[in-house]
Design a protein around this nucleic acid. Structure first.
Length: 235
DNA sequence: GCGACAG
DNA sequence: ATCTTGTCGC
């Protein structure tokens, strides 16, 4: 059965009704970051690797890391990233022994054409508060933040003019990141959390550490494959 | 109709 | 979603 983007769109419209932009209910003690890459990202983006890391908050010390490998079936189409990446990310998430109080996801939360980017989608199906952190804008209107670290500008919904997220500069002269609530958090709380988990890099720590960890895992898997191949050939 | 388009 | 190398700004 072929994947239907028409049905996926319908699913997003239904799930969007379950997004709650309400203040956090619990004190944040742990923050997770996650990321997904492929063994061969540009030539053959099929074998995916998904990773989750858990950090203490506000100290930002790593307390757990997990990863999972699986074939990714659905192609990437802007606006439908969740259908491609969420199945593997959820698999990795289930391996965590300590469930985090909140999760940072690579990609948008509600700053999405149908209000349900991957971070909002994750938050709705897991019931865990989530924040979207994207490296490129997708939806909404905003002004360029000033060049200093900590500068930000609201991202406004084109029709309602409501604040749905923030373009935030976490490092001086770096490109901004695009922060928006996924679920069970307000735009202002998402902004505050992004600023408080920044450590002078372009990306907030949960996202940055998850990305670094995944790079290490990916290189390890490639090395291991090369070693196996070498043993067979006796070269 | 055209351009833009998270990872 | 990657890698490598060089260059530039802070």
């Amino acid at each position: 059965m072929k994947f239907s983007f028409k049905k996926a769109r319908k699913a997003q419209e239904v799930l969007k009704k379950r997004v709650k932009l309400e203040p956090l209910k619990r004190e944040i003690k742990t923050v997770a970051g996650c990321d997904l890459t492929f063994l061969d990202p540009f030539k053959n983006p099929i074998t995916g690797i998904g990773a989750f890391i858990v950090l203490t908050y506000p100290e930002l010390k790593v307390v757990e890391k997990v990863y999972e490998v699986a074939e990714v079936e659905i192609p990437y189409v802007p606006g439908f990233l969740a259908f491609r990446e969420l199945p593997l990310l959820i698999k990795a998430f289930k391996k965590l022994k300590r469930k985090p109080d909140i999760v940072f996801i690579d990609g948008h939360g509600i700053t999405h054409p149908r209000g349900l980017g991957i971070a909002a989608h994750f938050g709705v199906i897991t019931g865990i508060p989530s924040v979207g952190c994207a490296k490129k804008p997708l939806f909404g209107e905003f002004k360029e933040p000033c060049r200093e670290a900590g500068c930000y500008e609201p991202i406004l919904h084109p029709k309602t003019k409501e604040t749905i997220g923030y373009a935030v500069r976490l490092r001086k002269n770096s490109k901004p990141v695009y922060i928006s609530p996924g679920n069970l958090i307000t735009p202002e709380e998402a902004l505050k959390l992004a600023l408080k988990t920044a450590r002078g890099f372009k990306l907030p720590e949960p996202t940055r550490i998850a990305h670094n960890y995944l790079q290490t895992v990916r290189k390890g898997i490639i090395q291991r494959k090369l070693q196996e191949l070498e043993g067979k050939n006796g070269s």
